[in-house]
Amino acid sequence: MIQLQVNGESRAIEATKLAQALLELGYHEAHVTTALNGVFVAAGQRAAQRLCEGDALEILAPMQGG
């Protein structure tokens, strides 16, 4: 298990790659976009993107805005 900050909350997960982590966290078919430690990770890069202890993962979705 590794400990991540997921959208600002501490979460322990088994996955070591970003694509697996999204499934483990429940974002199965969700239309989301991701950034790791402040850097955008495109959907096509998630399968190869390795996760490390303490990484900060942002998972964002469409939202109302002005």
Partner: peptide
């Protein structure tokens, strides 16, 4: 129409509903 993006909770899925509406 302007839109934005915010943290998504996997269980709530608020962003998915909004995206469908837009």
């Amino acid at each position: 129409v302007t839109v934005s993006l915010r943290r998504e909770n996997a269980r709530a899925g608020a962003g998915q509903a909004f995206w469908s509406l837009i």
